[in-house]
Amino acid sequence: MKRMISIFPVLALAGLLLVVAACASIKSIPGLPDSHPESLIAGQQINCSECHDNSSKGTMKPLTAFSHTKIFVKNHRYYASSDDRLCSVCHKASFCADCHTNQVEMKPSVKYGYRPDLEMPHRGNYMAVHKIEGKTNPASCYRCHGRANNERCIACHK
């Protein structure tokens, strides 16, 4: 026990030195800029690799990984869950909140009825087919309506 007590200050000092060294090293790690330096055209599918041909400082991923192809838009959850700091360089948080919200007031496709070019869920009269889609792949419903944004679901699903 005494031996443990004598070792403890040494370990604490070593730990402290590691923390200090890590903090000092952090200052040498580059960060992303807080916003895109040039305006981007609203509504345009952006291909980052048109201008960027390498990893951007701070992303550590090639920018081809973030080109907004149709496939990227449909599967953006993978990218957002590991790198939403890069998303926020060009997109405000409200851009995400149009669909990802705790309590939705109206379908995003209604709010943006003048933008049929945008990829948005439940376009048209989805009520009729949701009974089929919900059985085919309920996990896709759960992602948005499982623990939030389900005020309209519980009106019928009691």
Binding site: I26, K27, S28, I29, P30, G31, L32, G58, A80, S81, S82, D84, R85, A93, C96, A97, H100, R143
Partner: peptide, 20 residues
């Protein structure tokens, strides 16, 4: 300014790996 470090406080969304 460094290491993409940030702190947020208030009502916010957290998307980290399996967390949403």
């Amino acid at each position: 300014n460094h290491a993409n470090a940030q702190i947020r406080a208030g009502r916010l969304f957290v998307t980290e790996g399996i967390v949403n």
